Simulated scan of single mutants.
Amino acid sequence: MTTTVAVFGSCNMDLVAYVGTAPKRGETVLGREFHTVPGGKGANQALAAAKAGAEVRMIGAVGEDEFGAEIRRVLQESDVDVAGLRTVPGRSGTAHIVVDDRGGNSIVVVPAANGTVDDLAEGDEELIAGSQSLLLQLEIPFPGVAAAAAAGRRNGVRVVLTPAPAAELSEDILSNVDLLVPNEHEAAILAGDDDPDRALAKLLELVPEVVITLGARGSLYGNRDGARVEVPSFPVEAVDTTAAGDTYVGVLSAALGEGADMPEAMRTASAGSAVSVQRNGASSSMPTRREITDFLAGR
Rank of each mutant, 00 (worst) to 15 (best):
R290I: 02
S10N: 07
V16G: 06
V181K: 07
G42D: 13
A164T: 00
A54G: 03
G130P: 06
G104V: 00
D79M: 00
P232T: 03
R72I: 09
E122W: 01
R224Q: 15
V229D: 11
G259Q: 04
S233C: 06
A49W: 04
S219I: 15
V210W: 14
F67H: 03
V177Q: 13
A52V: 15
R290W: 11
E186I: 08
G115M: 06
L30K: 06
L204W: 05
L127I: 07
V99W: 00
Q278D: 04
E125Q: 01
G103T: 07
D194W: 00
E291T: 02
V82L: 08
F8L: 14
S78L: 10
V109A: 01
I173R: 02
A112Y: 07
L134F: 05
S92G: 01
V5Y: 03
E122Y: 01
G272H: 05
L179C: 09
D194C: 04
E205G: 04
N12V: 13
G60K: 03
T3M: 10
E184L: 10
Q278V: 10
P208D: 09
E66W: 03
Q137F: 12
A166R: 02
Y221E: 15
E122Q: 03
V37E: 11
A49R: 06
G115K: 08
G281W: 00
A255Q: 12
P38T: 10
G40A: 02
G20N: 14
P182D: 12
V277W: 03
T242L: 15
T21R: 10
K24G: 13
A83I: 03
G156W: 07
H35V: 15
S170Q: 07
E125H: 00
M286L: 12
N44L: 09
A49L: 13
P208Y: 05
F8A: 03
S270K: 01
G192H: 10
G281C: 04
A255N: 11
L15D: 11
E27A: 11
E184Y: 10
T21V: 15
P23N: 11
V5D: 03
E237N: 05
A187P: 03
L127W: 08
G115T: 11
D79P: 00
G226N: 11
D261F: 08
P141E: 06
V157N: 08
D79E: 05
F67M: 13
F67L: 05
F34G: 12
D119G: 14
S219E: 13
A52G: 10
I128A: 08
F67V: 04
L134E: 02
E209M: 13
T268G: 06
M58F: 14
G84N: 05
R299T: 15
R32Q: 15
S131I: 01
P263N: 09
R57C: 15
L136F: 05
A54M: 01
S283N: 13
P111M: 09
V80S: 07
D100T: 05
V181N: 10
E33C: 07
L15V: 13
R102G: 11
I59Y: 00
L169F: 12
E77T: 08
Y248C: 01
G104I: 08
V249Q: 10
A188Y: 00
R158T: 12
V160A: 09
I97K: 01
S273N: 06
G60Y: 05
G39T: 05
A113K: 04
